[in-house]
Design a protein around this nucleic acid. Structure first.
Length: 423
RNA sequence: GGAAAGUUGGGUGAGUGGCUGAAACCACAGGUUUGCUAAACCUGCGAACGGGCAACCGUUCCGGGGGUUCGAAUCCCCCACUUUCCGCCA
């Protein structure tokens, strides 16, 4: 959520910036300001009344001590009648507060100045490309055929055990998963991240904290009996560590990484997008989460981008970095970069990472604050990024590295797999 | 699954109706002392909202929600969670 402070301090600026996200903010913002004015007026009245009541109540105690029973009784009567009026004011306050939250939740985060204009994925800006595209022969196979040929992944078996989108990794296919997870975690550790192994099931409060609830309720698996949610990303449990927390400025930036399985219902997805490893209901991912000060968060973002770029380079995959345009960005991010690797056999780019700065938008909902040098509490900035999601990396590795002799494993990964070719 | 006890500020923890936004200790910050370090001593130290240029003032908050009362951390009800014992079990 945006803060009321942000909105009242720069109303026109915010409306203008929201337009970049193709969001017409004028009405909700005018609205929320008006409701807030009512709230403030009501609070002033209510506070004055309560102050009076408190004063009288205190005096009753004293009167009773002095044995002035009649005066005390009279005071009691007076207080009783005053309390009625407060009930209305309290109801008004509550209503206004709820309305403010409701309106604020409909307003997306403001994109920062470096976000380009644009309405959909076609308007994203290619920031950089790297790695070398490979030349594959005409009969090159897509990864789902390679997975079958070398018995690495059994999609049908997954359907039998669970359902579509839950593949079974076998032999070298399974080993490759473990190798990638270890590789990503080791690289993160080298970059100074603290490894976290969080629960993969969370309560509703955590879902709200990072914004999956209430909007994306239908995208998460839910256990009715205990009212818990399967996490769609490690971002949820790892960021919620800092829910309702006031940090010391000297502890920032906090740099955490975590490997978890991720669960996504992906309701409504279909077609070639979901073929093979392209879109799964359960997959492995290593996630980076950073909590930082507003002054330093863009420096953090840069470091995260460099880290992720280093990973795809070490895996020798052709990649590009996209700077997402306003229209294609998520509701909560202030700026977002996508990493894509090129899948030669599918002739398409596959998204493998998304690195975002949420500025204070997520922290506001999370109540994640820090104490600055003047001992004042300020909202932190939160950032996260995948480093990396496995399935599409595996797809690209299998496809791009296929040779007549077998599938070649990039050098950086060989110490982790224990083999240099899948044949 | 059965039973019991708990949930108070960054931490430990006192507090059973008004003098408690909350003792004490620890942690933290500033200062004094000291050749340095350590130690000792002094002072400060919760959050949100509202009012004010400010000093400051007011309100709310002791797991969450409701109730009793002129007045609730303290009494009553409901819910959530935690711990311990028993059972089951990786």
């Amino acid at each position: 959520m945006l803060t009321l402070k942000q909105i009242t301090e720069d109303k026109e600026g915010i409306i203008r910036k929201l337009a970049k996200k193709l969001f017409d903010g004028r009405e909700p913002i005018e609205n929320v300001i008006a409701v807030n004015e009512t709230r403030k007026a009501t609070q002033s009245k209510l506070d004055a009344n309560l102050a009076e009541l408190n004063k009288i109540s205190k005096s009753i105690g004293l009167l009773l001590k002095e044995g002035k029973k009649d005066e005390a009784e009279a005071a009691k009567q007076q207080v009783s009648s005053m309390k009625e009026a407060n009930k209305t004011l309290e109801a008004e306050m509550k209503e206004a507060e709820e309305k403010i939250i409701a309106i604020l939740s409909t307003i997306p985060n403001i994109p920062c100045d470096e976000v380009p204009e644009g309405k959909d994925a076609n308007d994203n800006v290619v920031e950089r490309t790297g790695g070398n595209k490979v030349e594959l022969p005409e009969d090159a196979l897509p990864h789902w055929d390679l997975a079958k040929k070398y018995n690495l992944i059994d999609f049908d078996l997954g359907v039998k055990i669970t359902g579509a989108g839950f593949p079974v990794y076998i032999g070298k296919g399974a080993r490759l998963q473990r190798a990638l997870i270890d590789f990503f975690l080791d690289e993160a550790q080298k970059s100074g991240y603290t490894e976290i192994m969080p629960p993969t099931v969370v309560n509703a409060a955590s879902g709200f904290g990072t914004g999956q609830l209430p909007d994306k309720e239908g995208q998460m698996y839910h256990t009715d009996l205990d009212d818990l949610y399967l996490i769609p990303t490690a971002e949820v449990p790892v960021t919620n560590i800092y829910r309702d927390v006031i940090l010391d400025k000297k502890d920032l930036p906090i740099k955490n990484c975590a490997y978890t399985q991720c669960f996504r219902r992906e309701a409504g997805s279909y077609g070639k997008d979901v073929r093979g490893l392209n879109r799964l209901h359960e997959f492995s991912k290593v996630e980076l989460v950073r909590i930082d000060t507003p002054e330093h968060s863009y420096e953090s973002l840069k470091e995260m981008l460099a880290h992720v770029e280093g990973l795809v380079q070490k895996l020798e995959l052709p990649y590009r970095i996209l700077r997402l345009c306003g229209g294609d960005m998520s509701f909560t991010s202030s700026i977002c970069f996508d990493f894509e690797v090129y899948s030669e056999a599918q002739k398409r780019w596959l998204e493998v990472s998304s690195v975002s700065n949420f500025e204070s938008y997520q922290a506001n909902r999370l109540k994640c604050r820090y104490r600055d040098e003047n001992k004042k509490t300020q909202l932190c900035h939160t950032l996260n990024g995948s480093a990396l999601a496995l399935p599409r990396i595996v797809a690209a590795l299998l496809e791009n590295n296929q040779t007549p002799e077998g599938i070649r494993i990039p050098k950086a990964l060989q110490p982790y797999t224990g083999f240099d070719i899948i044949d």
